[in-house]
Amino acid sequence: MSTQNAPDMKTPVPRGPLPILPPPRPRRMVEISIDGKAVSVPEGSTLLQAARSIGIDTPTLCFLENLTPVNVCRICVVEVEGSRMLVPACSRQAEPGMVVKTDSERVRLSRRLVLELLASSVDVSTAPQFQEYMKRYGAQPERFGDAARPAGNRDAAQPGHHHAPENGNAATVAQPVKIDNDLYVRDYGKCILCYKCVEACGVDAQNTFAIAVAGRGFTARISTEYDAPLTDSACVYCGNCIGVCPTGALMFKSEYVMRRAGTWDESKQTRADTICPYCGVGCTLTLQVQDEKIVKVTSPLDQQITNGHLCIKGRFGWEWVNKK
């Protein structure tokens, strides 16, 4: 190459102007009323954002800041004047003049029922947030009676006719835990079908599409094609599905093993944020440490580089620290 143009490497390059970043899109403000209080939010805000902006804590299960709202759990429903049905706060946008009630009897009933319906059909023992909501709304899932016997292989269920309920007992999604790899387990008896894992595996994060919802109705379930083991599927073990799972249905195998052994103790755990030691992306890792061992790795949602999503190395590639 010709070097006659090369700048003098020994002299520092002078400071330039500050980068010009695109200005934030100007957004009109929308005035609405929530629980009798006037609220002003930028156009395009959801009712959930509006409620949060004035400190109203709206429960959510299928919503997460780093995923597209799917509004399927319906626990965030609120009452909007003029609307026949309750509306999901997570996805409904504020419109001028909306009058919203977030804690009416109707709202509380639906929220309580959502919790009762789920808790009577799903094992929510490893879902602390869910249990907190149960207390808040006075949910009593036992109202629906004893759990029915597990329905057999849910993965073989056909859409359409089902067997009549046995003794009117409460059907559940109980089923054996799927353990087909050394990194994480899938305990779909704890799955509330919030779709978050599917979203994280899909366009919202990983773009791997290893899992989707299969089946229909009460037998709808998260599945690979033909329930193929993960090791035959498209799974790349990023564990972003674990990161978004609200009930512990998807769990690090390390946590699963410790819980089975009775050694998992969150009161003894500390957390520290650091940066992944592998590639140059710079994902923040939250290391969960118990007894001087890393037991779990997550990533904060507000971390702007990958919004809480990681890859297999960041999520699982730390065992050597424990094994040293």
């Binding site: 959502v114 789920l118 359409g160 089902h162 229909r216 109705g217 009460f218 709808a220």
Partner: peptide
């Protein structure tokens, strides 16, 4: 029960 798509909780379990 058979024909619920299974997407939302009130209908799927309700």
């Amino acid at each position: 029960r058979d024909e619920s798509c299974g997407q939302c909780v009130p209908c799927r379990v309700g």
